Computed example of a mutant assay.
Amino acid sequence: MAQSEHFTNSGDSTGTAVASGAVDTVLRRMRALDAVLPERDGIAVFNRVYLAVTEAIGRRLDTGHFPDARAAITLDVLFAERYLSVAEGGRAPACWRPLLQLRRHPGVRPLQFALCGINAHIGHDLALAVVDSCRALDCGPAALEDEFEQVGDVLVALEERIREELMPGPDLLQIADPLTHLLGAWSLERAREASWSAARALWALRGLPDLAEEFAHRLDAAVGLAGRMLLTPMPERADWPRNRP
């Protein structure tokens, strides 16, 4: 794959979004997806999660929570654009393909869909979005660390809520043992830390494009492998309510 397709900004639409600073535009695009996707579609499940995250970040921007609003908006919009380009039918990197391929699988639970999307977006897209933002703002990753951490804090808080809302209830805990074991092996906090390290490495390698591209490919493949495991179908059980999240 050419460097311009994977490691650099993800297209002209990215530059347009950043130029306008359009968090509201990002929200409109997510709401448009929510309106047309079937409720139990895997992308729809993740989209609802990400919409809630973006709304929370928007509220923080409105209240001056981010000291450097321009940096926060740039990172937020470039980050979101990588997901939206996939959800709206653009070319999908390896990390998103498991979710796209299994998005309607009846044996995959909504919580699995949500965490698979978070894995792809945090583990892969966030690292590249930091590099995109550094280029857009003409700065190094260290200048974006505060914004990175604050966005991450919103995501960690939301992950806890997702697990509470989408995990089968106490009456299904025994049935869900394989699910709890599978999902307990993945951590958003560890994914976020790895993403920051990957962003710093990619930035350090910017003068070595071939090596940077290889690193980005390996990152994409590794995150995609984790996503595939997160979507391991659960055995069908007659006593597992089909319509329960």
Rank of each mutant, 00 (worst) to 15 (best):
S85A: 14
S85T: 14
S85W: 10
S85G: 11
A87D: 03
A87Q: 00
E88Q: 12
E88D: 06
G89E: 01
G89L: 02
G90V: 06
G90D: 04
R91K: 13
A92L: 05
P93K: 01
P93I: 10
P93E: 07
A94N: 11
A94V: 14
A94F: 11
C95T: 14
W96L: 09
W96Y: 11
R97W: 05
R97Q: 13
P98V: 02
P98M: 08
P98S: 01
L99F: 08
L99V: 04
L99W: 04
L100P: 03
L100K: 05
L100R: 06
Q101W: 12
Q101H: 15
L102F: 08
L102A: 13
R103L: 02
R103Q: 04
R103D: 02
H105K: 02
H105Y: 06
P106M: 00
G107E: 07
G107F: 01
G107H: 07
R109Y: 08
R109S: 09
P110D: 07
P110M: 07
P110K: 03
L111H: 07
L111C: 07
Q112F: 03
Q112L: 00
Q112R: 03
F113T: 04
F113K: 05
L115I: 01
L115N: 08
C116P: 02
C116W: 02
G117E: 03
I118L: 15
I118Q: 12
I118H: 13
A120M: 05
H121T: 11
I122F: 12
I122K: 14
G123V: 11
G123E: 06
H124I: 12
H124D: 15
D125G: 08
L126F: 14
A127M: 13
A127I: 06
A127Q: 11
L128A: 11
L128V: 10
V130W: 05
V131E: 09
V131R: 13
V131Y: 13
D132M: 09
C134M: 03
R135W: 14
R135Q: 15
R135S: 15
A136E: 10
A136K: 10
L137M: 13
L137Q: 14
L137H: 04
D138V: 14
C139Q: 11
C139S: 10
C139L: 07
C139E: 04
